[in-house]
């Protein structure tokens, strides 16, 4: 059970949050220009990293804000948290 430091509310228990998968997969600006393969890449293909992953979380039962987290998926250690739109910390 993680202890997550919401950038808007502070430390809260994991059960207030929802995970939103890999971060920094930007929705294509011009989807119609993409091939089926490229669209599938956006839609379904994931790095699914074992190690340090950049991912999205939502304080669903709190402020409802989305934010980013850097977490090591092999240990569940949370390394950093930053707001949407902020530059990701270097590893």
């Amino acid at each position: 059970m993680f202890l997550i430091n919401c950038p808007y509310c502070g430390e809260r228990d994991q059960q207030e949050f929802k995970a939103g998968g890999e971060a920094h997969i930007e929705r294509p600006k011009q989807p119609t220009e993409l091939s089926d393969d490229e669209w599938a890449e956006y839609l379904f293909m994931r790095k699914n990293i074992k190690g340090v992953q950049f991912e999205r979380w939502n304080h669903a039962h709190g402020c409802r804000k989305w934010f980013n987290m850097v977490r090591d998926t092999s240990s569940d250690e949370i390394k950093a948290i930053y707001k949407m739109g902020e530059k990701p910390p270097s590893q």
Partner: peptide, 13 residues
């Protein structure tokens, strides 16, 4: 609501 917030906050801020 969750989905709309997601798009609003993360794709179309």
């Amino acid at each position: 609501l969750g989905k709309l917030e997601d798009y609003l906050q993360t794709e179309w801020p």
